[in-house]
Nucleic acid binder design. Structure first.
Length: 491
RNA sequence: GGCGGCGUGGCCAAGUGGUAAGGCAAAGGUCUGCAAAACCUUGAUCACCGGUUCAAAUCCGGUCGCCGCCUCCA
């Protein structure tokens, strides 16, 4: 069973075969840096982060390019409002974007080019299009002549004729045809501008992605991703520009588009003003919870982001965490590494592990069906929890070893999706620093408190015991009393 | 108007020909000083109508309802 990917171009799932064996080249439309990103934007970057991680898990070497659109009308407007230069605005929100990505534990793309650093490449493409007769200059602007490109509309399922009938397209005097789109825009006085054969100006939006993807990945790269709202006109225009300029096709082998995040059954978008910023979410929820929200729904289905959505995801996520917590408790008592004879129950459980891993990969191979994959993870969680419960009574010699195997699998599957990644190295560093400075670490102090609490409990001094528990809880330390003792963790 | 998608238990959500994964919530139970966690038990004829088939949530036709794109937008 190999990986199949839904291709927007063919509107069906296709076996995935990259251009170069063992390598995957992917491009995802990055942000226009004029504002903080919201949960809807973040979904796209999470989805393609998961795609990228899974491809890496499958053994592909992944080259992942994501651009910054750092020159655009919206940036200029924003700059005017805030009394800053466009470059300042772009730089500010680019920084914020990177922070947001990091806070969501999204792996950085391999290359993140900026539009303003790719302008010579854009001019070269535009010149090529003009010389081939597919683009024309008009008072300092340059437009692509859509009617000349026969394949126009093949991605979005539209024909140029239909588009012509739509009266909503602005009929600009500079365009020969209402649906022609800009490649280059003449700058107004005071606006950022670059010299070009058509006078000072700046690139239009669509040309950026063609230039940057072609520059770093070349024609016919594997995956081009983005939100469904980019299908038309953005990606349609990219195809037109790129295929005409290079004279080759296809521009892209697999087009992938993620569904939206809706709020109150309505699309979340900056223009509607119903946005929820990542920076606000992340102060209230751990990054894995946001990721869980995205994982629980197939990437092409829209997510309705209700007021309880994140809370539900949090509970679900905690179920996995609790399972690991329980396993760790069991494994703390591990004495021998020698594999003893396994019970029938343990052999059956190991069979279940293999089966779960197989079903997980099958789900992900089916167009990155994370919802199904998460389902498999929860089935595994249930089996492991049951086993841990049993072990608290049975304490069979092979138990911890099988449990350890189960935990390895659970962590492996979660980490493929970007969940439960090992705590950053900084935690260990901190612990080492404590020791170096001869200051007792929090861990040691908590253990001490729990010792006192255990003593209090043994004497039936419940008030003292409960005070310690509730005060620690307020400080973010969770305590569970189990048969074999107390366990704790930071929440 | 054109293109696309959706309608599955209280909520979210997989499943696209063989009698419905999973999560959240709820109720009862086990465990427990209490709490937390965990485990067990309880629930859907898959919007509606008609058709194809031995067999349909799943295919075909129709009806109703919702959403997105067609303008910047993930």
């Amino acid at each position: 069973m190999g990986l199949v990917v839904y291709n927007t171009m063919s509107r069906r799932k296709e076996p995935f075969q990259p251009r170069d064996e063992g390598k995957v080249s992917m491009y995802v439309c990055g942000p226009t840096v004029y504002n903080y990103i919201h949960i809807g934007n973040a979904r796209a970057y999470l989805v393609f982060d998961i795609v990228r991680r899974y491809l890496a898990f499958k053994g592909y070497e992944v080259e992942y390019v994501q651009n910054f659109t750092d020159i655009d009308d919206k940036i200029i407007n924003r700059a005017d409002q805030e009394g800053k230069t466009p470059a300042e605005v772009a730089s500010l929100y680019e920084e914020a974007f990177l922070e947001d990505m990091e806070s969501l534990n999204i792996r950085p793309p391999t290359i993140m080019p900026r539009a303003t650093e790719t302008i010579p490449d854009m001019i070269e493409i535009i010149e090529g299009l003009v010389s081939k007769g597919y683009a024309y200059a008009s008072e300092g602007d340059v437009y692509f002549s859509v009617a000349k490109f026969k394949d126009y509309g093949k991605l979005s399922g539209r024909s140029p004729d239909e588009l012509n009938e739509v009266g909503r397209v602005e009929a600009s005097g500079l365009k020969r045809n209402p649906m022609d789109f800009a490649l280059w825009k003449a700058s107004k006085p005071g606006e950022p501008s670059w010299d070009s054969p058509w006078g000072p100006g700046r690139p239009a939006w669509h040309i950026e992605c063609s230039a940057m993807s072609l520059k770093y990945l070349g024609m016919g790269f594997d995956i081009h991703g983005g939100g469904q709202d980019l299908i038309f006109p953005h990606h349609e225009n990219e195809i037109a520009q790129s295929e005409v300029f290079t004279g080759e096709r296809p521009f892209v082998r697999y087009w992938m588009h993620n569904g939206f995040v809706n709020i109150m059954e309505e699309k979340m978008s900056k223009s509607l003003g119903n946005i929820i910023l990542i920076r606000d979410i992340i102060t209230r929820y751990p990054p894995d919870v946001v990721r869980m929200l995205v994982l629980q729904t197939h990437y092409r289905t829209s997510i309705d982001f209700g007021p309880d959505a994140l809370d539900e995801s949090q509970r679900a996520y905690e179920r996995i965490e609790n399972c690991v917590f329980g396993l760790e408790g069991l494994l703390a008592n591990i004495t021998s590494k020698v594999a003893p004879v396994r019970t029938e129950r343990e052999i059956a459980l190991i069979d279940f592990f293999f089966d779960a891993e197989r079903r997980f990969e099958e789900a992900m191979d089916d167009d990155f069906n994370t919802a199904r994959a998460i389902g498999v993870i929860f089935e595994l969680v249930k089996e492991l929890n049951t086993f841990v419960d049993e072990q608290q009574i049975l304490q069979s010699p092979g138990g911890p070893i099988v449990a350890n195997q189960g935990m390895d699998l659970l962590l492996k599957l979660c980490r493929i999706l970007g969940l439960l990644e090992p705590a950053a190295a900084e935690c260990e560093e901190t612990a080492a620093e404590w020791e170096e400075d001869h200051i007792p670490s929090p861990d040691v102090l908590i253990d001490l408190l729990l010792e006192v609490r255990t003593l209090a409990r043994s004497k039936g001094e419940w008030q003292t015991a409960d005070l310690i528990r509730s005060r620690l809880h307020d400080l973010g330390v969770r305590i569970d009393d189990l048969r074999e003792g107390v366990r704790w963790k930071f929440t």
